[in-house]
Simulated scan of single mutants.
Amino acid sequence: MTPDTPAPPSPQDFRQLHRLDVRWAEVDAQGVVFNAHYLMYFDTALSAYWRAMGVSLADLRRALGGLFYLRRAEVDYRQAARLDDQLAIGLRCRHIGRSSLSLQGAIFRQDTLLAQAALVQVWSGLEFPARAQPVPELLRELVADFDSGKEVLTLRLGDWDALGAAAGFVRQAVFVQEQGISPELEWDDADAISLHAVVFNRLGDAVATGRLLPDGHIGRLAVRRESRGSGVGQRLVQTLMQRAQQAGHAEALVNAQTRAAAFYRRLGFTERGEGFMDAGIPHIEMRCALTSL
């Protein structure tokens, strides 16, 4: 490598890494990934990149009346990815032009660089044929702030009068529409006496919510599908745990859906007692001591 040659990227160069396992359908008879699938990996990671900022491409289309389309893609293959490899794919913006984003991508197996990519995404309106338009200032600031390590999501705390509409929007989408819970079971009198937390993205949309009851119970934790895997759920629970400790509680409690139990275990919660059904969904009581916060 000459002095003018940039050093190859490492996983630490990327704020967000999308992880996936190589599947049987993606490899040849020798167990090596077909070259074309690397572009699919980068495209999948691109969706995760936007989710980490709290938005989806559908959100951008709805709120800003436009979308990004791929103008150019170059892949530099270094080493082969193989069947059952656990890959980490990173993306970061290297330059924002008048109407485009220039992105650098990299695929890693642990710390080993397998492939690099240079992608150019162009912003356009919704008309056909697509025509390049200036990247909205909101998106310029969002991408620049995210890649520089700044916080791009806002967490607000308040009562039901202040945050009920936003919290209700998320809960309606997750619990009622997605999970099929009856509206009569979703809304209860506890909302009026709880502390609510809602996370908003830069578009002003609520993407996640949760509540803390006066007895230290954390509940109604919901994250919109587009924002899952971004860490926003963990941030919500940790914030509510801190507020529970400040209120004098020795432990935080949650009646977790059993499919979410592993998420709470990672935050220090442990199961207590037998499982039970609530609104037709299996639950388990979990507790976490707050002395170590």
Rank of each mutant, 00 (worst) to 15 (best):
A7W: 00
P9T: 07
S10V: 12
F14W: 08
R19S: 12
A25S: 07
E26I: 14
A29Y: 08
A29G: 11
N35E: 02
A36Q: 07
M40H: 08
A52Q: 09
G54A: 04
V55D: 02
A58K: 06
A58W: 01
D59E: 10
R61T: 12
A63S: 14
L64D: 04
G65D: 06
R71D: 01
A73W: 11
D76A: 11
D76Y: 06
Y77G: 01
Y77E: 02
A80I: 03
A80D: 00
R82W: 01
R82A: 03
L83F: 15
D84A: 15
A88G: 12
L91V: 14
C93E: 08
R94Y: 02
H95Q: 09
H95P: 01
I96L: 15
S99K: 05
S99D: 10
S102H: 15
Q104N: 12
G105L: 11
A106Y: 14
A106N: 09
A106W: 15
R109T: 01
Q110Y: 04
D111V: 09
L113R: 04
L113Y: 09
G125L: 07
E127M: 06
A130H: 01
A132D: 04
Q133W: 00
P134T: 07
P134K: 09
P134H: 11
V135Q: 08
P136G: 03
L138C: 09
L138R: 13
E141P: 01
A144D: 09
E151T: 14
V152L: 05
R156S: 02
L157I: 09
G158A: 14
D159Y: 05
L163W: 13
Q172G: 01
V176T: 04
V176P: 00
E178A: 15
E184S: 02
E186R: 15
A190V: 11
A190Y: 08
D191N: 11
D191Q: 15
A192S: 08
V198F: 11
F200Q: 08
R202H: 04
R202P: 02
L203A: 06
G204V: 12
A206Q: 05
G210F: 14
G210K: 09
G210I: 10
G210R: 09
R211W: 05
R211L: 04
D215A: 05
H217D: 00
G219D: 11
G219T: 09
V223A: 13
R224K: 12
E226Y: 03
S227K: 04
G229V: 05
G229H: 07
S230C: 03
G231D: 07
V232C: 03
V237E: 03
A250E: 01
A252C: 13
V254E: 02
N255M: 09
R259F: 08
A260Y: 07
A261W: 08
A261I: 09
Y264W: 11
Y264H: 02
R265I: 05
G268Q: 10
G268V: 11
G268P: 10
E271Q: 13
E274A: 15
F276Q: 03
F276G: 12
M277T: 15
E285M: 14
A289R: 15
